[in-house]
Design a binder for these strands. Structure first.
Lengths: 245, 245
DNA sequence: GGGCTATTTTGACATATATCAAGTCAAACG
DNA sequence: CGTTTGACTTGATATATGTCAAAATAGCCC
């Protein structure tokens, strides 16, 4: 939502492909102006690559925080579990995105992250990352950028939820998914959602029935084409209008 | 909400008082384990101190980002203005807190910050801060902490809004205010709100009438005592119960 | 203190979303 | 191929919050 599409120009994507061929560090590499040598050093940080199956935990609430993780393939959701057992989805993470930021301040993870499909991640030991960023100022600045972007993203997509109605929320969600898809080189209009209506509802603060009704209504209006979790966006501009941009 | 009260013990508060006698850098100093010499260097960063009257802008949307600001006295609100003129309050900032983080990623402020009362701030040039944090690892780590805490705070107070009803939101808001009050050495139960019902509503995604009704209802239930903007919390535990903690 | 204004409270009613309950659909499995 | 299962859709109704309007209150200036 805030990571505007035109933030990423072709040059940078090419550079990324070269730099991160064996590990998806898109979020870290992308706008950083590193020398080839520095990139190698960044690459070397992510010594661990791990695989997770659907439903596996990347980390649990209470786990000690040691690393960030760059998602190489697949997708994860983060959630908090309330005492009464309700699940609250707090975020969806897609390939190329960094997960775990929320725990830096507390040294302990405050939510759970689990795979929504079979996935691979690269581990980025926080200590080494901080150490390296001390040597490479542009990396340091970029780390700050990622974190504050996270703040902005939350404000962008979540904060406004309070003032948005159900269909506006869903429109914002779809646009967000579309942009993140596009950033990662995939279609901006053909979405394959990895999450259920229940999870979308939990994330957006709506009941699954409301989510479903909104999808149906969008389809009736000709804004999207719904085939279960495969969504085709037919009228991007109109969706943008709905969320006021 | 996430900056738990017991995060701050007496020792640290004493250290803070000594370290930051002439400039309120609480958020920066507090959990940082700096040598006296390093503290002086941090102090020296905040060379600029500025005053603002009620309604003055600290920065406007579109302003180039150069500095963070530590609030020394008074309070600010951040907001975005929608095309149609509606105001959306995105945050309230109190003494000792850092404002401006949201702009690091974009180099440009995306929201406006203005004084809710006569206030003073210390300017913290971002470049110098980053430079210094490269030399002082514990400061670097702490900068990261502040930023990710901001993420968590947003998730804590805002993300849950989606799933909270009006009175739960207001309870969360009051608890948040109470904690921030307490952190800054003021009463946890006697609150002097600096913002109108309209602003609270904008922040919480509610109409001012709903906010007012919720206040009245809390008072009827004996949870709080309302005298305009002076709120006395009578039953902290019950409020905590309402937000599920 | 008296009168002015903005803020807050309260009430009656409208509307959006939640809730409860069926019903449909598609994938998985025997 | 039929059955089962879980996910999704749709409908009827309840409830929470928004909307509009008026009254009460607090703050402020004279």
């Amino acid at each position: 939502m805030n990571v505007a599409l035109n933030d990423i120009n072709q040059t940078e994507i090419t550079r990324l492909r070269v730099a991160c061929s064996n590990c998806n560090l898109r979020e870290l590499c992308l706008p950083v102006d590193l020398t080839p040598k520095e990139m190698v050093r960044l690459e070397e940080l992510s010594n661990q690559k791990r695989s997770y199956e659907t439903g596996d935990y990347l980390y649990r609430s209470g786990d000690r925080f040691k690393s960030l993780h760059a998602i190489r393939s697949g997708s994860f959701k983060t959630r908090v579990l309330h005492e009464d057992g309700r699940e609250q989805v707090t975020g969806f993470l897609m390939p190329g995105e960094i997960i775990g930021l929320e725990a830096i301040s507390t040294d302990v993870h405050t939510c759970e992250a689990l795979a929504m499909e079979d996935s691979e991640v690269c581990e980025l030991p926080y200590g080494k990352l901080a150490e390296l960023s001390r040597e490479i100022p542009s990396l340091q600045r970029h780390l700050h950028k990622i974190m504050s972007r996270e703040i902005v993203r939350d404000q962008g997509i979540m904060l406004l939820l309070g003032s948005m109605r159900a269909e506006e929320r869903l429109a914002a969600f779809l646009l967000n998914m579309s942009q993140r898809n596009a950033i990662h080189g995939m279609s901006a209009t053909q979405l394959r959602l990895r999450m259920s209506r229940l999870e979308i509802g939990s994330y957006l603060g709506l009941k699954l029935e409301t989510v479903s009704r909104a999808f149906s209504h969008f389809q009736d209006e000709g804004l999207i084409q719904v085939k279960a979790r495969a969504i085709e966006i037919l009228a991007l501009p109109k969706l943008r209008e709905m969320v006021g941009k």
